[in-house]
Amino acid sequence: MKAKVLLSLVLLCGNLAAPTARAGDAASAASPMPAACELPSYLLTSESQLPKVAEAIKAGKPLDILVIGSRSTTIPSSESSSYPARMEAILKEKLPPSEPVHVSVEIQSKKTAEETASTFVKLMEAKTPTLVIWQTGTVDAIRSIDPDEFRSAVTDGVVALQKAGADVVLMNLQYSPRTETMISAQPFLDNMRVVAQEHDIPLFDRFAIMRQWNEQGQFDLFNPSRGPELAKQVHDCLGRALAQFVIDAAHLEPAQQQN
């Protein structure tokens, strides 16, 4: 346990130090103000592990990541600033240059977890990712799907992905203060946590992370502005956090990282 805490602290420090050190040479790729991304370490770590990711990196095999998401996976009209793209860039920075990283995105907008999960068998036949990051829950919350049904749909989806031979990370809803009175997120957050616990897979708590940023004043998520700037910054930070989270859950030795 102690060793693990220590490791994650080391990883975290490495991560926090990295953006500042690189700001000069990678200004175009890195966020202009990485301090905004800061998070307490418990939001970036998981008890559960990603053995297949670890194996692939150890063996120097390519790391194929598939992000299955919905409309909040992307930013309208600026694909390259969305969190999957940002995660890819950060992972490439952090992993050894010899390690090929490829991230692809499968967007199923306006689909519930059940509808999305029903496509997984076919989807996984076409692609064989090492890791699937499944972001879900928003559509179900908007349509107030029965939480029990939601849980079994997520369970089925996770099982299908694991059967196809991939590591799985679950990602929950965005924190959206404007619509808090209208969308009841809690049952969906709870049930995703339960599924993650039951299947011993890491849960990337996007909701808690974004709430943390909003509360600490790093981002003002109430902002009604129509421009894409805020969205870009938030996605950049999400991509960084997600990359960090994956590296941590795969338990990579510092030697396997570039910094």
Partner: peptide, 12 residues
Amino acid sequence: FENPLYTEEMGI
């Protein structure tokens, strides 16, 4: 409210 970060949530 038209923040592009939340186009999906506006489905409500």
